[in-house]
Write a protein that binds this DNA or RNA. Structure first.
Lengths: 99, 99
DNA sequence: TCATGAATTTAGAATATAATATTTTATGAG
DNA sequence: CTCATAAAATATTATATTCTAAATTCATGA
């Protein structure tokens, strides 16, 4: 099934958002539990602005959502289809031949 | 399930290879039928060197393979898990909420 | 061998991404 | 109000991608 261009661009935008180690790890953490920015930046050993920028990219694609709770902002997986996608990826990567 | 970093990098490499409209379209065409570079460049209305470069990226990740047949080189999907991934993507993108 | 078509390679310029450092905004405590 | 902390926004720099153009390789047929 060959897709029309518009939908195809949409999919590659989604893939591009996920195609970064830090963002992929953010997604994998958020699938397990919602987290605030500070926790994420400590877990990932990256600066707070850096994580915030990555979260912004994920949010702009509708992958994650956030909710302010007092002074902290909690992020969570917003699009359930991303969980399916992630699970397929970690399942299929086992049969992945390098090179 | 949170992955270790190495596997995570591997997955994001795979996603990065697919996260380009032209390459995604190449994959979608090759899932239907093997094709030579010239055909692909005509179908996608892109230059032959450009398509050749994209094919090289897909090949370096093991996504596609190729076989020379006389003067033409035929490309085909090498990793079957990419087909599963593609099918999930076009199925899930229907429930995709923009923004 | 020469010409041609198919494909790849290389070099470059233009654009896009990503990280760091800095500043700004928001919230809550005292 | 002032201070401290969390988060976001901005600016800058460094790096990576992508496309175009030109040159090169490879196979085939006249």
């Amino acid at each position: 099934m060959v897709l029309e261009n518009e939908r195809l661009e949409e999919i590659s935008e989604l893939l591009k958002a996920l195609a970064h180690p830090t963002r992929l790890k953010i997604v994998s953490i958020l699938i397990s539990s919602k987290q605030c920015v500070k926790n994420l930046s400590e877990m990932l050993e990256a600066s707070q602005p850096n994580i915030s920028q990555h979260l912004n990219i994920l949010r702009s694609k509708g992958i994650v959502g956030c909710k302010r709770d007092g002074s902290v902002v909690c992020y969570y997986i917003k699009d359930p289809s991303v969980i399916k996608l992630y699970e397929l990826l970690i399942k299929e990567v086992y049969s992945w031949q390098e090179k």
